[in-house]
């Protein structure tokens, strides 16, 4: 299991006290954050590491969140940016070390009970095979239920870019999952 770089998970310096409202809203979001993290990371253990790193970053930056704006979109943006940093760090590592573990890593579900279910493993494999930008778009819109405009804001891309990633991601999923969808 790989760790999220220490630079993003250090919370030794608490910046004052976070408001109870912020904290409770964040606690309420945790199950959804975990789902999105799992979708991005394609792996239960990596997903949980990503989720924890996101919580730490959100707590450190809580003063940057503006009351009255959507906390979920704000937290998801933090999470996908952390994940991009992490994947870049991993590909740098992969250039140094032989990338032999990459193959066994793809499509491995962390939760044995879920993995045992053939249908579920099938969807996991199809999602894992998507390019990261398409997977992210599919997760935000089809799984997390964000509107195109909101998803584009979270990713930080134009609407047109988001919709074309969605179209391509869906085509690929349809192909991989077949007519049985």
């Amino acid at each position: 299991m790989k760790r999220i770089p220490a630079s993003v998970s250090s919370t030794s310096k608490a910046k004052g006290v976070t408001s109870t409202h912020f904290a409770e809203s964040l606690v309420e979001l945790l199950p959804r954050m975990r789902r999105f993290a799992r979708g991005l990371a394609r792996d239960g253990a990596d997903g949980d590491d990503l989720c924890q790193a996101t919580i730490e970053r959100a707590l450190k930056s809580s003063h940057l969140w503006q009351e009255g704006t959507r906390l979920d979109a704000w937290v998801y943006r933090i999470m996908r940016n952390l994940w991009i940093d992490e994947t870049r760090a991993r590909s740098r590592r992969a250039q140094t070390f032989a990338p032999e573990e990459e193959g066994e890593h793809v499509g491995v579900a962390g939760d044995a009970a879920i993995e045992a279910h053939a249908e579920m493993a099938h969807v996991d494999r199809a999602m894992a095979a998507l390019p990261a930008d398409q997977r992210e778009a599919v997760m935000l819109v089809l799984v997390e239920g964000f509107a195109y405009k909101e998803a584009a804001e979270i990713i930080g891309c134009p609407m047109g870019t988001l919709t074309s990633r969605l179209v391509r991601g869906r085509e690929a999923l349809m192909r991989m999952l077949g007519e049985t969808a």
Binding site: R35, V123, L173
Partner: peptide, 16 residues
């Protein structure tokens, strides 16, 4: 159906 299948697939994670 694709949309339903994906959201059903990921739902248990958010329910755990």
């Amino acid at each position: 159906a694709l949309r339903d299948r994906l959201s059903a697939h990921f739902a248990p994670i958010a329910q755990a």
